[in-house]
């Protein structure tokens, strides 16, 4: 064998071991009736698992919950992050301290954040409901109507700082001169934001959206730490449902096929955002 092929062999072996093999194995599982409690009795199913999950209401419920979660969390984080970044840029006193404090939530591991909010928002002994009650507001944060929304708020609390960080970096990198020109041209702050800041920040925004959306699709820790999918199945997200099917009910074949469907959904999203990013002004639309 030629030397250059032999040189890449170790890397190829590592990749095969940690990526190709698990992927291929889960692919294989997804077309078999593979149950952890009947591991010596595995029958070929073909597209049976896929056909089943695509007609299975709990799967669609989990997927819908996840999409609502991703869409809700990421759009609030985008708006809030952009607003905070713009405000932080104007801040005169202690700007670095403020930035450091604002970034702190990002450095806590999500499972800990989940536990923290589970206690903070607990309807019986949580601090937040306690003070809200003092103001005459009675809210059951993890009740059937609000639970998913509460999870969104927790995600917003933890990950808005990431958006702020991205947008601050993006804003710092923008050229100063066009903004001075806009001031002399008499543009209001809204017009400047709408026609200069936003378009010039476009690629940073899209990158931030992709990173956050991909991450939000994988939401698991908050659900696991707080609601376990409840009340009912109102906060059952796709990853939590996969986990439940595979590791609590031992139906790994079904779980693997759901994972592949999730990959397909995410892939479509990424490609859509990527195409949107490639389309820059100055080129044919």
């Amino acid at each position: 064998m030629h030397l250059r092929f032999r040189l890449i062999l170790p890397l190829a072996a590592v990749l095969a071991a940690i990526m190709v093999y698990p992927l291929a194995f889960s692919g294989w599982i997804s077309v078999h009736d593979y149950r952890l409690d009947r591991i010596d009795d595995v029958a070929f199913e073909g597209i049976g698992n896929y056909a089943f999950i695509l007609t299975n209401p709990p799967f669609w419920n989990a997927l819908t919950n996840t999409v609502v979660f991703v869409f809700g969390a990421v759009s609030i984080e985008l708006a809030l992050g952009l607003g905070l970044a713009l405000l932080l840029r104007r801040m005169v006193h202690l700007p670095n301290t403020a930035r450091a404090i604002l970034l702190a939530p990002m450095f806590i591991t999500p499972i800990a954040v989940g536990l923290m909010f589970r206690f903070l928002l607990n309807s019986e002994f949580g601090v937040i409901p306690h003070y809200l009650a003092a103001l005459g507001i009675e809210v059951d944060w993890f009740g059937p109507d609000l639970a998913l929304f509460s999870l969104i708020l927790i995600d917003v609390w933890q990950w808005t700082p990431f958006m702020v960080l991205m947008f601050l970096a993006g804003l710092e990198a923008l050229p100063k001169a066009p903004f001075e020109a806009a001031r002399v041209d008499g543009a209001s702050s809204w017009l400047t934001f709408r026609h200069l800041t936003l378009p010039m920040l476009r690629s940073v925004i899209l990158v931030a959206l992709i990173i956050r959306a991909l991450d939000a699709f994988k939401v698991f820790e908050y659900v696991y730490a707080i609601t376990r999918g409840g009340p009912g199945d109102s906060t059952e997200t796709i990853l939590f449902y996969i986990y439940k099917t595979g590791f609590r009910f031992f139906r790994l074949g079904e779980a693997a096929s759901m994972a592949f469907v999730l990959v397909a959904v995410v892939l479509v999203l990424v490609i859509a955002l990527y195409v949107a990013m490639r389309r820059r002004p100055g080129q044919a639309p």
Binding site: P175, A177, P178, E180, A181, D185, M200, R202
Partner: peptide, 14 residues
């Protein structure tokens, strides 16, 4: 007033 900047300062996205 209208100003012409040394580095032009055109709006790159317009």
């Amino acid at each position: 007033v209208a100003m012409v900047f040394q580095n032009y300062a055109l709006y790159p996205n317009m």
